[in-house]
């Protein structure tokens, strides 16, 4: 990293203005700091590696072999693309992919817009902020299966609150989970309720940590609140928002509990997500080869998505990296 840095104009100029011994000291210092960096990160990386490498590699291996789950363990044989052939050839998989992508795009967009707005409101609260944060965290910290059951109860066709509200405002008795479109929308509402707080809290922490002087400068300029937001707050918040989006994409792509509890993937397979499909393949059908192939394909697609996202937003995510 230090060599690349030396090639860029800012460091060159700064180098030129410094006396030679300072430069050498700085280089030594830099190497020392780099070593320190690895000392600092190694414990965390070791923990992650110890737990994750084996399962990830195991899944990769399974996705490329003929897998038999037996009482005596997993039997893997042969190197094959058959699992991927099965996956890519499946109408259900193609549908699940489309559904998961649509779901991710819609919920993440709504959640990020809404979450940022909530964070902005919270930032202005003084005394109430702690309470509001506690409140916001409740949906997020509800056990996922429970929040799905809560919505199941709300959407219940016989005694559900949603049905009572719809009929009270003259909308009759819509079949909430029974048609493809409304089931998808109902699921998105439940997701947005649960996950918007996640985004709001990440963005709020980012907001709170913004340097205060930029606002003062804006006020001197005479900008109004709206202008300040668009011209100053939002650009400064972009790395934080980008981070929230990144992790929301990861979570949304893993959508599992809501369809599993609310609709079991139905009606038909209208709300079958990639994770539900993979789970069914592995644990219901006990075909771990195709199941692992679904999981690996999903992971690969998300990684590609994230890399593309980082490409587009790299300045945002890495802003302030070197200063």
């Amino acid at each position: 990293m230090s060599t690349d840095r030396a090639a860029t104009p800012p460091s060159l100029t700064s180098r030129r203005t410094l006396p030679p011994e300072t430069v050498r000291k700085k280089d030594v210092n830099r190497r020392r700091m780099a070593r320190l960096g690895w000392y600092f990160s190694t414990p965390a990386l070791l923990v992650v590696a110890a737990v994750t490498i084996f399962p990830v590699v195991f899944s990769l291996v399974m996705s490329f072999s003929n897998v038999q789950v037996l009482g005596s363990g997993f039997q893997l044989s042969g190197l094959t693309l058959g699992n991927f052939h099965t996956v890519f050839g499946s109408v259900k998989w193609r549908y699940a992919l489309g559904f998961t992508v649509l779901y991710t795009v819609v919920t993440v967009t709504v959640e990020v817009v809404l979450g940022t707005m909530i964070a902005l409101v919270l930032e202005h609260l003084r005394a109430l902020r702690g309470w509001m944060m506690a409140l916001l965290l409740i949906p997020w910290s509800l056990i996922t299966v429970i929040s799905a059951q809560l919505w199941n109860y709300i959407y219940d066709p016989t005694y559900g609150a949603a049905d009572a509200i719809f009929s009270a405002v003259g909308l009759g008795h819509p079949v909430i989970l029974g048609s493809n479109a409304s089931a998808v929308i109902a699921m998105m509402v439940a997701d947005i309720w649960k996950t918007t707080p996640f985004v709001a809290i990440i963005v709020l922490a980012g907001l709170v940590m913004l340097p205060g002087d930029v606002y003062e400068a804006a006020e001197v300029d005479g900008s109004n609140g709206w202008q300040t937001f668009w011209r100053i707050t939002l650009p400064l918040l972009r790395p934080t928002i980008a981070l929230a989006v990144l992790f929301r994409i990861l979570q949304a792509f893993g959508l599992f509990d809501l369809p599993f509890v609310l609709t079991q993937g139905g009606p038909g397979y209208a709300t079958t997500s990639l994770a539900v499909l993979g789970y069914q393949a592995m644990f219901t059908n006990l075909s771990f080869g195709p199941g692992a192939a679904v999981a690996v394909t999903t992971a690969a697609l998300v990684v590609i998505g994230c890399i593309l996202f980082l490409r587009v937003f790299r300045a945002q995510v890495n802003e302030g990296e070197e200063s």
């Binding site: 992650v48 737990v51 994750t52 084996f54 399962p55 990830v56 195991f58 899944s59 789950v69 363990g73 997993f74 990144l246 992790f247 990861l250 792509f253 893993g254 599992f256 994770a275 993979g278 789970y279 592995m282 644990f283 771990f288 199941g291 692992a292 999981a295 690996v296 999903t298 992971a299 998300v302 990684v303 994230c306």
Partner: peptide, 20 residues
């Protein structure tokens, strides 16, 4: 690499982690 690890679906790692 850290990001890729958090991408990996939980359902896929259960069985191998159990063995571990």
């Amino acid at each position: 690499v850290l990001l890729m690890i958090s991408v990996f679906p939980a359902i896929a790692v259960i069985a191998p982690l159990y063995l571990l």
